[in-house]
Structure formats: C-alpha cells, structure tokens
C-alpha cells in the first residue's frame, strides 16, 4: 500500500525532515498511550504480587510458571479452538456472501452491507441476551424443534463452546467479509470472461481465478477476525457459561475481581504472544506458501 504511493510521491516535492512534524503527534500518542502501557504491563508481570500490592522491588517468573498449570492450559486450548473454529466458519461463509454482494447493484450492496454490519450496533451483552432467547433450553430453536416433533429433549446449544461460536460468528464475520467484498469488486471482470471463453466452467473460474486473486484479502480479514475471537469476553461469558471460560474472561477475573495484576499481566502477555504468533504464521502463509499473495 505504502510502497506504491511513495513511488508516486517521489514525483512531488519531497517532505524531507519535516515529515516528522506530520508523523510526530500520532507517534507520540502511540508511544505514551500504547507502547508505554503495554511495556509497563510486561514489567508488572515480572514482579510478585503481595497482599499489599505489587512488589516492584523484586523480580520473578512465577506468574508465567503459573500459566503452565493444566487449568490455564485447558482454558488456552479452548480459547484457541473456539477462535479458530469461528475464523474457519467465517472464511467458508465469506465467499457465498461476498460473491452475492458483489453481484448486486450499488444500492443493494449498501443495504446488504448495512445488514451484515448490524451486529456492531448492539452491545455484546444485549446481543448475547437475544441469543439466550433463541438458544436456551426453552429458546425459540428448541421450542420450534420440539413442537415439530424432531427432538424429545432440548438440544444443548449454549453454555458450551457451540454457544460461543454461534454467538460470536455473525459480528466477527464482517471483518472477513469487508476486505473480501472489496477484493471481489476490484476483480477484473475481463479475466473471468477470458477464462469462460476459453471453455472453463463457472466453478472452475471461481476456483482457478477468483479464489487465488482474492485469497490475500481473505487472509487479511481472517487475521483480524481471529484476533477479535481471542479478545471477546462478554459474549463468551454469557453464552459459554461458567464451565466454558475463555482466556480473556479469566484475564478479566484476575485483573478486576482478584486484583492480581502481575498474574493478570502475565495472562495479557501470554495472550498477546499467542495471538501475534498465529498472525505471523498466517502472514507467512500469505507471502510464502501461496505465491500469489503479493498484490
């Protein structure tokens, strides 16, 4: 994105040293209100917690060793499992929706996007409440299926991982859909025409032309989607229930209920490392393994 633009700007009058006047304010803000807090939390996670508060004079890795406990291991695995599942479903659902969207007129597209954006207008807690009315033991789905005689006892659709996936998917789906939609719109129609006139069937065109050309956008969206899945905590707390806790909720409890900031900091750092690790692997895939990743 940048490199192309910068190439053009070389034609113009160079900014020179005064470029930092433009970048300075944002940079200063990010240093003071973003990097400094994250750095501080990392430092805090290396101090022991005492009944009187954080002991800033001694250092320890005990907070990280505590993460190796099987309880937290299970929570981490569950969080990853749920997050990856949601990303997988989002990616699978994105093409049918994106292709359909791109085929609509401008007005239709605007309205459809508005609808797909709508989960973002409602507080996560309230939305989860709506889901409870649908997914609960006496919810709409179970009542419907029971009155149709399809099931005897209610299906367990919430208070487990299923509930978290169902509840988070619609909102986080948008972050895969938007970049894919943009990429599909930008796709050169002539390419598909060319492939068709050469005798390719529509599904062959889709698999051989459309997918490879839009894959980078899809992956970029999938990364943000995955991050959001890892971070969500209000909806998982309500739809997953007390037995199905995810990492971010544990972090909430440790920081705001137990008030153990050093351990809470260690949880935050662990989450950051795991998330960024996955993001880097995904980006590596885009650049390396898939060849056509560069735009």
């Amino acid at each position: 994105m940048i490199s192309g633009a910068a190439g053009r700007s070389a034609l113009g009058i160079r900014l020179g040293g005064s470029v930092w006047l433009f970048l300075g304010p944002a940079l200063l803000l990010m240093l003071a209100a973003y990097l400094a807090p994250l750095f501080d939390t990392t430092i805090v996670s290396l101090h022991p917690n005492r009944p009187t508060g954080i002991d800033r004079d001694s250092w320890t890795i005990a907070n990280y060793l505590r993460l190796l406990d099987t309880y937290y291991g299970e929570v981490l695995l569950r969080t990853l499992r749920v997050s990856l599942l949601i990303t997988l479903f989002s990616v699978l659902l994105a093409y049918p929706v994106g292709v359909w969207l791109a085929g609509l007129g401008p007005r239709g597209q605007a309205w459809a996007i508005l609808v797909y954006m709508s989960p973002w207008f409602v507080n996560a807690v309230v939305k989860s409440f709506g889901w409870t009315l649908i997914l609960g033991n006496r919810g709409l789905v179970n009542r419907g299926l029971q009155s149709l005689g399809l099931i005897d006892s209610p299906l367990r659709l919430m208070l487990n991982e299923t509930g978290i996936v169902i509840g988070l998917l619609p909102g986080h789906f948008l972050f895969v859909l938007l970049p894919l939609w943009a990429a599909l719109k930008g796709l050169d129609g002539n390419l598909r025409w060319a492939a068709m006139t050469l005798g390719a069937r529509p599904w062959q065109v889709f698999l051989r032309v459309t997918v490879p050309l839009t894959l980078p956008a899809l992956l970029a969206g999938a990364i943000i989607n995955f991050t959001m899945n890892m971070a969500a905590f209000a909806a998982p707390a309500l739809l997953g229930g007390t037995r199905t806790r995810v990492l971010s909720f544990i972090a909430y409890q440790v920081n705001l209920e137990e008030l153990n900031w050093p351990f809470g900091g260690a949880l935050a750092v662990a989450m950051l490392v795991v998330t960024l690790g996955f993001v880097m692997v995904a980006q590596g895939l885009t650049r390396g393994g898939l060849g056509g990743g560069r735009r």
Binding site: D40, T41, T227, G265, L272
Partner: peptide
C-alpha cells in the same frame, strides 16, 4: 487492530 482489546484494557 491486531492486539486483543483485553490486553490493551489491562495495560
């Protein structure tokens, strides 16, 4: 966009 919001909230 990439760093989980919970992490920043804690920080």
């Amino acid at each position: 966009l990439i760093v989980p919001a919970v992490v920043y909230g804690i920080a």
